[in-house]
């Protein structure tokens, strides 16, 4: 109970920071808008296979940009303060929660922009929205943990991409397979693949809670 309250407080702190320092939030929005506009200029109305591929690659880059700063923005002094008031598990869970929410908003927003600019090949709309939510969640979880590693290594977002791309490929493969089924009218969406993705997400959360204590002590 106590730990739930602490997670909520830390989560609210991140949310408040985001609302007050709006430049980073609008920065990501602008990033989404600009990227999709460039795509619109470059490919106009792509066929559904290309649309699907582009959509998930853009999700990946949005995720790296949105999540990268989550640990880099915490200064050394502030980390010391968190160290004294919260446990590492609470801290990382709050970060995971906040980044999931952020990625959820960004994912849905980019879906809207994609359908506006690049056409709408989706046959099963509700299923595809569900996939965007699940995919955004998976991506944000993995990259939140990698952001913690990159921040500790005192590196920029570039190392995060190097560390993250090989790890995220399996999940992206599964997601693209699922969304291909959501775009094609005749294919059914395989339930076991969805369950596999959810299981991977749970695995990432557990690993983060177990491994983060080793990262944040200096």
């Amino acid at each position: 109970m106590q730990s739930l309250r602490r997670i909520y407080t830390l989560f609210r702190k991140d949310l408040l920071l985001e609302v007050r320092q709006q430049y980073s939030f609008y920065g990501i929005l602008l990033y989404i808008g600009a990227t999709i506009f460039v795509l619109y200029m470059a490919v106009e109305e792509p066929e559904s296979k290309v649309w699907n591929g582009l959509f998930w690659v853009i999700q990946l880059f949005i995720c790296i940009n949105a999540v990268a700063k989550s640990f880099l923005q915490e200064s050394r002094g502030r980390m010391l303060y968190f160290y004294s008031v919260a446990s590492p598990g609470d801290f990382v869970l709050a970060k995971l929660l906040f980044n999931s929410l952020l990625m959820l908003v960004m994912g849905l927003l980019s879906l809207v922009l994609f359908t506006l600019f690049l056409g709408n090949p989706i046959e099963k709309t509700a299923a595809f929205i569900g996939l965007v939510v699940l995919g955004g969640w998976s991506l944000s979880l993995v990259f939140t943990f990698l952001a913690a590693i990159a921040a500790k290594a005192q590196q920029n977002a570039a190392i995060m991409a190097v560390l993250g791309f090989p790890i995220i490929i399996p999940q992206l493969l599964l997601l693209m397979r699922l969304s291909k089924a959501a775009i094609a009218p005749l294919l059914t969406i395989p339930t076991d693949t969805i369950l596999l993705l959810v299981a991977l997400d749970v695995l990432v959360i557990m690993l983060s809670v177990i491994l983060f204590p080793f990262l944040w002590k200096d």
């Binding site: 500790k152 290594a153 560390l163 790890i167 991977l200 990432v204 491994l211 990262l215």
Partner: peptide, 14 residues
């Protein structure tokens, strides 16, 4: 420390 953490995380995802 950091590379051990990455090693474990990466293996579990591998």
């Amino acid at each position: 420390r950091i590379s051990s953490v990455y090693n474990i995380f990466a293996y579990a995802m591998l």
